[in-house]
Design a protein around this nucleic acid. Structure first.
Length: 302
DNA sequence: AGCGGTCAAGTTGAT
DNA sequence: ATCAACTTGACCGCT
């Protein structure tokens, strides 16, 4: 059966991840600042453990970890080395416990850095900060055993080929801890599956197929064609994304995500494949549960 | 307890 | 020109 994944947070379940802002910690004394950040890191590590246990008990096969699991980790003014925080051993130890727990219960863990992380930018500073962010997420990945860090190809800057060339160049220079986890996903504005499938193959990076984005930004390839090609880019369990449009396909802004997945939007050709499908839906764990029950009962055309 | 203003970051396209 | 959207609205200070 397909492994369904929950993204970042819970709707009803009382498991929360906490963060803070640069502005706020900027107004604290050094002692209070360190204490605040240490507490958030420790709480988040414990919340991740709860999230893994919840997924394990509720037949949710994977969990995407929020990029702010260690708040402000790479901030230019307030970033920090986890090993230098008070209770560093306890924080790291809790994350490693998450890793053992996830492995024991077969829960796959993933990361999806946010929109500021790009390797195709012509601006050196953007690239430098992106790599720093990727290294941080890879560090946590090492502790918890996350095997995928998904990014988009970024902007086109008026010349897609030149942008992809920069991306390729940066990919080959990445530290191994990042490169071995990195995967690239099609987006809904710039890069289609067609743009990325060959690129991913050539560069030894798996392709994350987001079928919703593909339906928003079409290029002529069918869902079946892309699915087949995407599977071949993976050297481990392939990972895809699904979501449904908030206001329907015929209305404006189909890219906005619905609370739940409409079973009609779940590609028929994905059924029975040994893949992870991350469910990008606002109703979170409720949406994953509903999709699972519909996949078990629903047959198209009935 | 509830509410409103605010929050580090890049790029694009709709308005 | 401004702003919302993107994988995730959450946090803090004021009343």
């Amino acid at each position: 059966m397909i492994r369904l994944g929950l993204c970042c947070k819970f709707l009803n379940e009382q498991i929360r991840f906490y963060t803070t802002t640069a502005r706020y910690v900027g107004g604290l004394s050094p002692e209070k600042k360190t204490a605040k950040i240490k507490n958030l890191c420790l709480q988040n590590a414990q919340s991740l453990l709860s999230a893994i246990d919840y997924c394990s008990k509720n037949n949710i096969g994977s969990f995407r970890i929020n990029s702010r699991i260690l708040p402000l980790k790479t901030h230019p003014d307030f970033g920090y080395d986890i090993k230098k925080l008070p209770q560093a051993k306890e924080i790291e130890g809790t994350f490693k416990l998450c890793g053992r727990r996830a492995k024991a219960s077969g829960i796959r863990l993933t990361f999806h850095p946010d929109q500021f992380v790009l390797l195709s930018s012509p601006h050196k500073e953007v690239t430098r900060k992106s790599i720093q962010e990727l290294e941080y997420q890879a560090e946590v990945s090492e502790w918890v055993g996350a095997d995928v860090i998904i990014i988009h190809a970024g902007g086109a800057y008026g010349d897609k080929n030149a942008a992809l060339k920069r991306l390729s160049y940066e990919l080959q220079k990445l530290p191994k801890s990042v490169y071995k986890r990195l995967a690239i996903e099609n987006d809904d504005r710039v890069y289609t599956p067609k743009d990325l499938l060959g690129f991913c193959k050539t560069n030894g990076v798996p392709f994350v197929y987001d079928v919703h984005h593909h339906r928003c930004l079409k290029e002529g390839l069918s869902v079946e064609q892309v699915t087949e090609a995407a599977l071949k880019t993976w050297n481990r369990e392939p990972l895809f994304h699904v979501s449904s449009p908030k206001f329907g396909w015929e209305r404006a802004r189909p890219n906005l995500h619905h609370d739940f997945i409409n079973i009609q939007d779940f590609p028929e050709c994905w059924r029975g494949l040994p893949i992870t499908v991350e469910v990008e839906a606002k109703a979170k764990e409720l949406a994953v549960k509903k999709l699972r029950s519909q996949l078990l009962s629903f047959r198209k055309g009935i």
